[in-house]
């Protein structure tokens, strides 16, 4: 395809819209996984560009750990009301109550790993055959090798050695019953691309992405928001800091960075100069060099 008259953001956008329309065309019951983070917010805008003035051919699905930033939930509900699309919530608390997963204990307890079970149950309950997600290949080295249409077996597992070749702009969404496909329309975007796009499109974000004063504690060298969801003890010193978040996940595993960037231009400036990658602020990736690969094999986003 000769795309060279297009600016890079236009090209990335056109590719993502093409992928979203392929999902609509190839699957019976797709869903868009919405976390309230900037990547899935970007996906919602791309879906508007792909399908308006029609309705989305899929609902939004939020896997709710119960350990959310309040601001994210508020944002989610306002956004859903604005766009008038259906929202389905899969609750990790419910998975715990039903005994399907067991809450972790100890100082580093987090519900991050438990999400996978809730996600798979939600997929099963609604018979979703494709789940659109906001993962990008620049986030992590296992993700760098994942296909845009990434097939999962009926246990939700990703098998990196049996990935289908993905050629040209042709996506093979054929699956057997019980399997499903994770689709990543912004695979080829970088963190900076997403921010530049958000700026260009003037997309509103949850306020926690911008610098604000917050009570924090330091855990394993990283700043965590003080919250009832962290198992804190007397050794944890609560300090008020001016921070912002680069990713939005579960409160118990998303670290803050100290920042004065309260405007999007400042954030873009900060990221351009930053020497810590975005997932560097995610404790869930720090377990081992292959942490993400292992979680993806187990059915994670």
């Amino acid at each position: 395809m000769s795309e060279y008259n297009l600016d890079y953001l236009d090209e990335l956008e056109a590719e993502a819209i093409h992928i979203l329309r392929e999902v609509a065309g190839q699957f019976e019951k797709p869903a868009l996984l919405f976390s309230g983070g900037k990547d899935s917010i970007t996906l919602v805008r791309l879906a508007e560009k792909a399908f308006r003035p029609g309705k989305f051919p899929f609902p939004l699905v939020h896997i709710d750990t119960g350990h959310n930033f309040e601001e994210t939930i508020q944002y989610r509900d306002e956004m859903v009301a604005r766009i008038g699309e259906k929202l389905i919530i899969g609750s990790v608390q419910q998975s715990i109550d039903e005994g399907k997963v067991i809450e972790q204990t100890g100082k580093n307890a987090s519900r991050n790993a438990l999400q996978t079970v809730t996600l798979l149950d939600t997929i099963l309950e609604h018979k979703f055959d494709a789940c659109i997600g906001g993962a990008r290949r620049d986030e992590e080295k296992a993700r760098a090798k994942e296909r845009i249409f990434s097939v999962r077996d009926e246990f939700g597992q990703w098998d990196p050695k049996r990935q289908r070749p993905e050629l040209w702009n042709i996506y093979n969404g054929k699956i057997h019953k019980g399997e499903n496909v994770r689709v990543f329309p912004i695979s080829n975007w970088t963190e900076l691309d997403v921010w530049n796009y958000i700026r260009r499109e003037n997309i509103a974000l949850p306020s926690i992405y911008f610098a604000h004063q917050r009570d924090c504690i330091t855990r394993n060298g990283q700043l965590m928001a003080a919250s009832p969801f962290l198992n804190m003890d007397d050794e944890d010193l609560v300090e008020s800091k001016k921070v912002r978040f680069r990713t939005v996940g579960d409160m118990s595993c998303t670290a803050a960075v100290e920042s004065d960037a309260d405007l999007i231009d400042d954030i873009i400036q900060e990221i351009s100069e930053s020497k810590i990658s975005e997932r560097g602020a995610r404790l869930d990736d720090k377990v081992s060099e292959a942490a993400m690969e292992d979680r993806k094999k187990g059915g994670y986003f």
Binding site: R137, D138, K141, A142, K145, P160, K161, Q163, S187
Partner: peptide, 22 residues
């Protein structure tokens, strides 16, 4: 660029890895 565990263990590139810079 060697993203997958098997590749790191064997010191070879098995799959297609996409990398970005500007």
């Amino acid at each position: 660029t060697d993203g997958l565990r098997a590749e790191r263990e064997q010191g070879i590139t098995i799959d297609v890895a996409y990398k970005y810079f500007q």
